[in-house]
């Protein structure tokens, strides 16, 4: 199962240049569906990349600091283990949402400002491999 996921980024790049709207990859342990949304990459909850950042608690999930206009991480960003990749807001308190391991940012799985529970999948990362240059 690890093989196709290591190449999802590349495959989706190819896909973006085609008129194929849906590509399904099947392996012994699961399936991945890549949707080609007019060049806009969509990461779906039913798709299972290698690294999922989950919520450390209940609160409002923030892509960016409330005082900032830019997200903490962007498409293709290389992320280090323990790096803060999102924030969880409870009242006036901001708590870190940290990457569990090194990876490359794929996408947010929840919208900015959405209320999330403990364990909710927030961010998709994929493992950094030698084939893919950051």
């Amino acid at each position: 199962m690890s093989m196709p996921f290591q190449h999802i980024h590349q495959i989706s790049e190819y896909l973006a240049g085609t008129d194929i709207t849906l590509l399904e990859l099947r392996g012994p342990k699961g399936a991945v569906r890549l949707a080609n949304n007019a060049g806009k990459r969509v990461v779906r909850d039913d798709l299972v990349p290698e690294i999922i950042v989950t919520s450390p608690g209940t609160g409002l999930f923030l892509h960016r600091h409330p005082a900032s206009e830019t997200a903490l991480i962007h498409d293709g960003d290389v992320v280090a283990a323990e790096q803060i990749v999102g924030l969880l807001r409870v009242g006036v308190l901001l708590m870190p949402v940290k990457a569990p391991s090194d990876g490359i940012f794929v996408g947010h799985l929840m919208a900015h400002g959405e209320l999330v529970d403990f364990g909710k999948k927030l961010i998709a990362l994929r493992a950094q491999t030698k084939e893919v240059q950051p």
């Binding site: 409330p66 005082a67 901001l94 708590m95």
Partner: peptide
């Protein structure tokens, strides 16, 4: 350490 606040300008 390692946590933060929503600034009053945003609250």
């Amino acid at each position: 350490v390692g946590f933060g606040l929503v600034p009053p300008a945003q609250v």
